[in-house]
Write a protein that binds this DNA or RNA. Sequence first.
DNA 1: GTCTATACTAGGATAGAC
DNA 2: GTCTATCCTAGTATAGAC
Lengths: 219, 219
Amino acid sequence: MERAPTRKRENSEQRILDAAISLFATRGYAATGIRQIADKVGLTTASLYYYAQTKDELLLRVMRVGLGELLASGEEAVAASTDPREQIRGLLKVHLNFAAGNPERARVIDNEFQWLDDEDRESVIALRDAYEQLWADAITEGCRRGIFLVKNVSLTRLALLEMCNGATHWYRANGPMSLEQIVLAFEDMAFALLRTDEPLTVAPAPGAGLTVETAQSPQ
Amino acid sequence: MERAPTRKRENSEQRILDAAISLFATRGYAATGIRQIADKVGLTTASLYYYAQTKDELLLRVMRVGLGELLASGEEAVAASTDPREQIRGLLKVHLNFAAGNPERARVIDNEFQWLDDEDRESVIALRDAYEQLWADAITEGCRRGIFLVKNVSLTRLALLEMCNGATHWYRANGPMSLEQIVLAFEDMAFALLRTDEPLTVAPAPGAGLTVETAQSPQ
DNA sequence: GTCTATACTAGGATAGAC
DNA sequence: GTCTATCCTAGTATAGAC
C-alpha cells in the first residue's frame, strides 16, 4: 500500500545501524548505551525499540550482514581463479577493502562477538570460520602443488589474517598510502610468508649469488 | 613498626590487580564493574577504594607495570647483541613470552588504553612507542646492513607485531604447540617477512646505498 | 513511526563505624 | 584494612499517547 512508512523505516533503520557501528567501534558494545545511539540518530530510546527489540539484536545484525558480505566477496574471489596465488591475491584485496573500506564495522565484527548470546555467537562464528576456510583452502592447495612452502597452515593463516586486520587500526583514507599501494605491500608480505624460511636461513653473502627460491615444485 | 598491615596490603593489592586484569581482559574495562572486581577478590567495593581512588587507576597501574616490564625485557634483548637478526630473535622471544605468558594482561594492555584519561594515555603510549622503536631500530639497522630487505619499515614492524599479538587470542598453555615451538615458528615467519620478494630478485650492491625508509608511520 | 513518562537495575563513588 | 549504608547517575526496557 503506502510506500512512505517503508521509506522512512529503511532510512531510520540504516541510520540506527550506522550509529551503532560507529559507537560500538569506538567505545565497545558494552560501554555503548542505547541512549547514545538514539541521540546520535536523533530519536529517543523508545523509538529504537520499534526497529530492534534488544541492544544485542543491533550487534547481531551488524555482524551477520558484514560477515555475509565478506564471505560472499571471498567466495567470488576464490572462484575467479584456480591458481592459489591468484586466490590469495583476491582474498587479500577483498579483506583489505573490507577492513580499510569500513574499519569501524570491521573492528566491531572482529572484537565484539563475545556479547552475543550463545546461539547467535555460534551462527556468527560459523560465518567467520567459513570465510577463514577460504584462506586455509587456498594455502593448502598452494602447498599441495608446491607453489607455497609453509610448515604450519593454521599458523600461517592466522598470521596473515592478523596482519591484515592490523590495517583496521592504522589505515586512514587520507593517509600517505593509497589502498591500492597497501594491497600491493601486503601482497609482498603475504607471499614472503607463504614460503618457509628454511631454504633462506643461510644468510646470503652480500653481492654473492643472492639465490632466492622462486615458486617451484619440491621434486 | 608492625609488618602485618603491609603484608596484608600487598596481598590484597595484588589480588585486586589480578582480578582487574582477568575481568578487563574478558569483559573489557568499560563493562567491568568495581562490584565484580570486589566480589572476585572477596572484598566490598568500599574496600577497593582504600587501594585505588578510581577504577581507571587500576587500569593505569596494570598498563604501566606491564609495559614497563615489556620495555625493560626488550631493551635487554636488544642489548644482548649487535646483530639485527639476533635482536629480532630476542624481541620475538620477549614479545611472545609476554603475550603467551600472560595473555589476559597482554590483551588488556593492547585493547583498553582508550579508557585512560588524556594525560595517562599519553604516558602509556610513550612506553609503547619506546618499545616499538626497539623493533623499528633493529629492522632499520638490518636493512642498512643489507641483512634485511624491506620496502617499508613501519608497515613491516606493524605486521610483525600484529602477527605476534595474534598469539594472545589463540595461545593456550596446554595447546598442541609449546611456547618454544611457537617462538621458532614465528622466527621463520618473521625472517620470511624481513626479506621482501621483489628486491631479492636483484642482487643488492653490497655496501652500496640500499636506501631504506626510516621509521615513520606506514601511511 | 515517534513520542513522553517511567519502572527497575546496576553503575561509580563516599561517609563514617569498627 | 574492611565493613555497612547510601548518594546519585546512567543503564535497558516498556506502556501507552499521538
